[in-house]
Design a protein around this nucleic acid. Sequence first.
RNA 1: UGGGACGUCGGCAAGCGGUCAAGCCACCGGGUUUUGAUCCCGGCAUUCGGAGGUUCGAAUCCUCCCGUCCCAGCCA
Length: 578
Amino acid sequence: MDKQNPSEPASRETGTTDFVRSLIDADNAAGTYDGKVHTRFPPEPNGYLHIGHAKSIVLNFGIAEEYGGKCNLRFDDTNPEKEEVEYIESIKEDVRWLGFDWEERLFFASDYFEQLYEFAERLIQKGLAYVDDQSADQIRETRGTPTEAGRNSPFRDRTIEENLDLFRRMRSGEFADGSRVVRARIDMAAPNINLRDPIMYRIRRQHHPNTGDAWCIYPTYDWAHGQSDWIEGITHSICTLEFENHRPLYDWFLDALDAAAPNRPRQIEFARLNLGYTIMSKRRLLELVREGHVSGWDDPRMPTICGMRRRGYSPEAVRNFCRSIGVSKTNSQIDIAMLEFHLREDLNRRAPRVMAVLDPLKVVIENYPEGKVEQVEADNNPEDPDAGTRLLPFSRVIYIEREDFREDPPKKFFRLAPGREVRLKHACYITCNEVVKHPVTGDVVELRCSYDPESAGGTTPDGRKVKGTLHWVSADHAVDAEVRLYDRLFSVANPADQAQREGREYTSYLNPESLSVLKQCKVEPSLREAPVGTTFQFLRHGYFCPDSRDSSLDAPVFNRTVSLRDSWAKLEQSGAAG
RNA sequence: UGGGACGUCGGCAAGCGGUCAAGCCACCGGGUUUUGAUCCCGGCAUUCGGAGGUUCGAAUCCUCCCGUCCCAGCCA
């Protein structure tokens, strides 16, 4: 057996393990599946994938990888009413983008409709399933409640022959939509409501994205899922907590079909991901899109994979985040600071540094010759010596960040102020000599400065120190750009819960400042041809990427992925800056 | 009032009867720095939802209680 040495669990790298891996380790130690580990990621193609799915994808594909097993991509397409090919394609793209490969194992529950149908006949033959002629309403009424048992259907004791005949005629389209269902014959008094003769098939004349009009009966999730796992040879069927109540049914179907180890899948449930200040339900996400609260599924504020991609997140960062949050059965909500941490960690390592002035203030360097242009050398990434350097044009008129100048600076402010000297990153030292104000509004419109001709590349021969280093951009060479700053989508940590508690619409908690657009930004010339798909560090600001939809050569548009940590802002806000 | 699950630091999360209750994020110091970024160093639960009990010894076992989540779709 070349699979996995039970004495060396796959989780040894981290030194700690989650309960799913522990369970797998135990199965391996006991030889339950002959050491085989085979998982699957089973999305329903009724929406776009979000960060919560990423957690599941990283878990399922990750486990397969660690244990030398496989992970299938299987679409749970049993309900043609909500499912569309658009979603199938986007899901494939997103899983790939996250960095996972299902190889040749792309499956659909609908691939097994015929097999499932045969299985169902088998259950009928064994007296374990029956055709029920009751209406949906009747079925609901007789199901009982959590505290009261349900009542048996009058059709529950039909003969096997009659059931078989009816089932075949259901398939062949003899009956109207909704007129009959097939149910598992379990126990209408079971305390677990899922066991009160759950529905296996419903009649629905609906075009199916995969099977077209071949079927007018469709299996339910409960009937299709476990059997699909079994057919594919899945060993560990990992799903979220809300399916815990379904596990007895999952097992009941497998028992009914005489599934046995080592080929009998096992369902394991973990807590789904909840992130603060956003929403994770596909239904609500769809609403945000349809009602126009966001620009689409890939709006950079959305927690969708495509939204994060457009926002400039890297797949590595998303994966690291998913791995770092752990897997447990505790309902919890992760702090977005955790996501941002992994984003910065990854982007810091890889993002090319670049200068961009978001709120420009004109600076004239009076003792710098008019018309002269120097090319200064700038490193592309101090974290990565292999990233090389580039040349930046420097000239008499530049822009600096408006907030980098204070006419009346607080104590711990060590940027530019009247009479102060600061360093222009990669270029020279300048001193502010004069503040030019608008005659009417009194706003600062321009700074008159002088530079030290001895200073070069950011240092001076005498080695004197300055406290502040500013980013800048040469006025004549700068490229105009639009920059979009994003903030949390909702202004409360728990929009869904809070809405319910306070009897409001969750949309009433949408953060009105989740997007702010800056139109007059000045960015360094190298950004004119910034390729979509790379995220840059705008020095001293944060990470930004060209918007994949709206950015063009003529009118570049950048999305802020995440800001840099800003201890000065924190200091100033706390009032400790003097 | 039925069934299933979960409660360990501000947020995650290890721990599975035996010296001090991992680690990460956040936070708070301090150092380095041509990004107030990064990096480095240090601090951060005498206590494990509560109360009893078993034991030489319990976050870990037992009992009761409290709190939270899931289940009455022909959704998944």
